[in-house]
Design a protein around this nucleic acid. Structure first.
Length: 353
DNA sequence: AACCCGGGGAA
DNA sequence: TTCCCAGGGTT
């Protein structure tokens, strides 16, 4: 640190104490609330996640309430937030803490990290924020802040750089107020040391920043280029029987695990939409599906691929369905759609039914 | 080390 | 469009 660690700490916390956003989990010391906020904000912008946090806490105000709920009720509250393994792991951890930890959170980051969904970042965040344990955290914001403060030219997403950044986070930590320091570093990254066009003119630690003194603030940090994601064409079969539609529950592990959906599949190169719909009937559902009219064409982006959904209304002979594509099937009417957690892509055409 | 896992807002 | 977000888990 160029002008001394103590002055850096003082400048950072003075700024934080004056400028910190009034976020709901900053009004409490309850480790349950801190934990929930940390899980919910993983790879999620504060503005996007905060309404979910408020709603979730109303529905599941404490650990016991959460542990006694069903996984599907938890997923319903998580619906639309993405990365649904977070919700399933949250639910599992609630039960582990209830069954094996007397319903209390461990304070040690090493023990916290044994719980599902809690990695090095979240363990450090809970330990430092809820319990005052002097441990660092490293998230996307702090990576960028440290890369600029120390003018790191290596790509920040390389494992070796990640190790170096954790060391810098530890060396930079303010052990007097670790929770506030960690939050201040994230706050700085989110509001001042932003990815494009950092607001160095209003940065409280500008004189400690090597990137600024070298005019590198707009070129750092470096990042390795991302791979291009494939684009798939899919059909979705909205199979109607009277006023009910067939939906299936996806297997709990894996992509969109535990969510409900209309049956669908990739369109293969040799077939058209209607061929694919009939194939879904034969191979997935063991059901004779008769394709009807096109309901919608929906585009949606996931982490590692993009899809275009061709949604078709279909009819079928109602029979016993046997399939391993889903763990359960139900015929439901549109007025009960809101009982089921669906992927966000489905909500782009659900209201049309 | 590489890959998998969502969704949305800002530029 | 692309980028990136209070990351974690699996192989």
């Amino acid at each position: 640190m160029r002008h001394g660690r103590t002055k850096f700490h003082a400048a950072l916390l003075q700024w934080y104490d004056a400028e910190a956003r009034d976020l709901p989990w900053r009004r409490t010391q309850d480790p349950y609330c801190i934990w929930l906020s940390e899980i919910m904000m993983q790879q999620t912008r504060i503005d996007q996640g905060t309404p979910y946090y408020e709603r979730f806490l109303k529905r599941f105000p404490d650990l016991q309430t959460l542990a006694q709920a069903t996984e599907e009720a938890v997923l319903k509250q998580w619906e639309g937030l993405g990365y649904y393994s977070r919700a399933r792991n949250l639910y599992r951890t609630a039960q582990i803490l209830t069954d094996q930890y007397h319903g209390r959170f461990p304070e040690s980051p090493e023990v916290l990290q044994l719980l599902p969904g809690i990695g090095k970042y979240t363990a450090g965040a809970i330990a430092s924020i809820a319990f005052g344990v002097p441990v660092p955290v490293l998230d996307g914001n702090i990576k960028r802040v440290l890369a600029r403060l120390y003018a790191l030219v290596e790509s920040i997403d390389l494992p070796a750089t990640d190790k170096r950044l954790w060391e810098l986070a530890a060396a930079t930590l303010n052990v007097k107020r670790p929770g506030d320091h960690n939050q201040a570093m994230m706050e700085l990254g989110a509001r001042v040391c932003i990815p494009a066009g950092p607001l160095c003119f209003s940065c409280p630690v500008q004189r400690h920043c090597r990137a600024f003194s070298a005019s590198l603030q707009d070129t750092l940090p470096h990042r390795t280029p991302k791979k291009v994601v494939p684009h798939h064409e899919m059909v979705v079969a909205v199979i109607a029987n009277q006023d009910a539609y067939l939906i299936g529950k996806r297997p709990s592990q894996g992509f969109l695990g535990g969510l409900w959906e209309f049956p669908g599949d990739r369109i293969q190169k040799t077939e058209g939409c209607e061929d694919a719909l009939r194939r879904i009937g034969e191979e997935m559902l063991r059901l004779k599906v008769v394709p009807g009219g096109l309901v919608a064409v929906v585009r949606h982006a996931y982490t590692h691929f993009k899809v275009t959904l061709h949604v078709y209304r279909c009819t079928a002979v109602k029979r016993r369905i046997c399939s391993d594509a889903h763990t359960e099937y139900r015929w439901v009417t549109p007025d009960s759609f809101d009982q089921y957690p669906f992927p966000a892509g489905h909500h782009k055409f659900l209201k049309l039914l």
